[in-house]
């Protein structure tokens, strides 16, 4: 298990390889469909410093408020491929060093990871209670009113957040590898 402190440098991110298990500590920000569209279409400045050098987490959490403080109750990853049209540009525009999500992403993002120096980190989908326990503090929330709880951008401090590198910054994707093999087997089973 590789321990990584956020924010992180391009040099450290380049060292990660497909299949590495990583544990993250530091500040990260959630963002999904509404946030990605917003970042590209309106190019907001207020989140620039926040995102630089950290990772964006594809997650729409279950939260509760206790004594004026937000608590993460359940917070597993959501399907990443929906952000494929935006992700590469978001990474470059905001200087992000990684994406956390599930299911992997496409060619365009893989190329951006290589070009810009970033990785795709896979969290265990559905492991929402366990992952929420890695969130030690919610620092802020952006666009809560407009986007709603799942779509808002939550600024999180995490400790030992477990992920696997499934797409690295050298053009390797575990998802492509598995898909090639399963395609072959599916064709054999179907006799086509």
């Amino acid at each position: 298990m590789i321990k990584l402190q956020l924010p992180v440098t391009e040099q450290d991110i380049r060292k990660l390889k497909m299949g590495d298990e990583v544990s993250l500590t530091g500040i990260m920000v959630t963002g999904r469909d509404a946030a990605h569209a917003w970042m590209i279409e309106e190019n907001p400045d207020e989140i620039r410093d926040l995102l630089k050098g950290t990772v964006i987490y594809h997650c729409g959490p279950v939260v509760k408020k206790e004594d004026d403080e937000w608590i993460f109750v359940a917070a597993g990853p959501t399907t990443s491929i929906r952000e494929e049209p935006y992700q590469g540009d978001v990474l470059k525009t905001y200087g992000l060093r990684g994406v956390i999500g599930k299911g992997g992403m496409g060619e365009k993002t893989l190329a951006a990871l290589k070009d810009h120096g970033a990785v795709y980190l896979h969290a265990v989908g559905g492991a929402a209670t366990l992952l929420a326990k890695s969130v030690v503090k919610v620092h802020d929330v952006i666009k809560l009113e407009e986007f709603g709880v799942p779509e808002a951008m939550w600024v999180l401090e995490v400790k030992d957040f477990p992920v696997v590198v499934t797409m690295d910054s050298h053009g390797n994707s575990l998802h492509t590898k598995i898909k090639e093999k399963s395609n072959e087997m599916a064709n054999e089973l179907m006799g086509i």
Binding site: C59, G60, P61, V62, V73, A74, A75, G76, T78, V124, G125, G126, A127, A128, T129, L130, L131, A132, K133
Partner: peptide
């Protein structure tokens, strides 16, 4: 995760 969710009565998955 399933064990923790049951014990704490929190959602197994956030979705």
């Amino acid at each position: 995760n399933a064990t923790m969710a049951k014990k704490d009565s929190t959602p197994v998955c956030q979705d």
